[in-house]
């Protein structure tokens, strides 16, 4: 039976070990954090660590959900992330479509500007953004934070959507146009339904960016009304000296939406990181 199998060279197995190591390096810290969140504080501080699967419970999760304002923070984050996704996708889809379908003058320039925006340091924008939002009366509001995130995610969204539209065969739309469809109609009825998977991936990428951000949330929110979870968690740790099992439980809870989104559209989403930077 093994006679059929080709004998693998040593390098083949070395590569396997390397790949396994990379995978473990990525997920072991997260698995350890999850394991810790299920243990009691007494066990956590006992050394050497005894691995046991008895005495594990989700108590810490119920604890943070019941006794802290974590649910409120999660709600704020969900609202801001959702609003960011809606606006960013709407504007990004239109812009991406225009840049993919129309060969107008200035197209290259617009594409280049959207690429160059990535080079702008966020720190330089913090102060003027804070002052500007203050003047607009948008400090400590959902819409202020949403506008900030939308602007930062737009360039990537536009480049990604342009890529998805580029990969559609143009004949489909031409046929619809000949049948009397308007340009808007052709975009709306033909092209957008076909890029829905791409739209889902782009939306998830945008949602994660908004969900994860600390810096802008730290500046642009000041009350529990709008504070997002990264800011709230940072404060909770400062104020209450959170015990490890509570801290790890909140970490896992806030990582959960990211992991779910990642599991659904991760493969398409990672393309978003390199979008626009490898071609031209």
């Amino acid at each position: 039976m093994t006679a059929l199998k080709k004998k693998r060279p040593v390098s083949y197995h070395l590569v396997n070990i390397g790949i396994g190591f990379l995978a473990l390096f990525a997920i072991l810290p997260i698995i350890w954090t999850f394991y810790t969140s299920l243990r009691t504080n007494v066990d956590i501080n006992k050394f050497p660590t005894k691995f046991s699967f008895s005495n594990l419970s989700f108590d810490a999760y119920f604890g943070v959900w019941r006794d802290t304002n974590f649910p409120m923070l999660i709600k704020n984050s969900l609202i801001v992330s959702t609003m960011t996704v809606i606006i960013s996708l709407a504007l990004g889809t239109f812009a991406g479509y225009a840049l993919s379908r129309s060969k107008f003058r200035g197209r290259q320039g617009v594409l280049l500007v959207y690429l160059a925006i990535r080079l702008v340091p966020g720190v330089l924008l913090l102060i003027p953004m804070y002052l500007f939002m203050n003047r607009l009366g948008l400090l400590d509001s959902y819409i202020g934070l949403t506008l900030a995130y939308t602007t930062f995610t737009l360039p990537a969204t536009i480049w990604l959507m342009k890529g998805f539209f580029d990969s559609l065969p143009p004949d489909l739309e031409n046929a619809a146009r000949i049948d009397g469809c308007s340009r808007m109609g052709a975009m709306w009825r033909i092209s957008i339904p076909l890029v829905l998977p791409g739209l889902a991936a782009t939306g998830t990428l945008t949602a994660i960016t908004a969900w994860n951000d600390v810096l802008f949330a730290l500046l642009l929110t000041s009350s529990d009304r709008t504070r997002t979870w990264p800011v709230g968690l940072r404060e909770m740790i400062g104020e209450f000296q959170l015990p490890w099992e509570a801290l790890t439980a909140t970490s896992i809870l806030s990582l959960l939406p990211v992991v779910i989104g990642f599991a659904l559209v991760g493969r398409k989403m990672v393309a978003g990181i390199t979008a626009g930077s490898l071609k031209d």
């Binding site: 504007l91 129309s102 959207y114 702008v120 003027p128 953004m129 002052l131 939308t150 602007t151 737009l154």
Partner: peptide
């Protein structure tokens, strides 16, 4: 021929208001 620019306008307004203007102010 303005089709493309109409689709681009909303995103450009945002980028000018919340990236270029703050950059200049900074």
């Amino acid at each position: 021929k303005y089709f493309a620019w109409i689709l681009l306008a909303p995103s450009m307004i945002l980028v000018v208001a919340f990236i270029f203007y703050p950059l200049y102010r900074g």
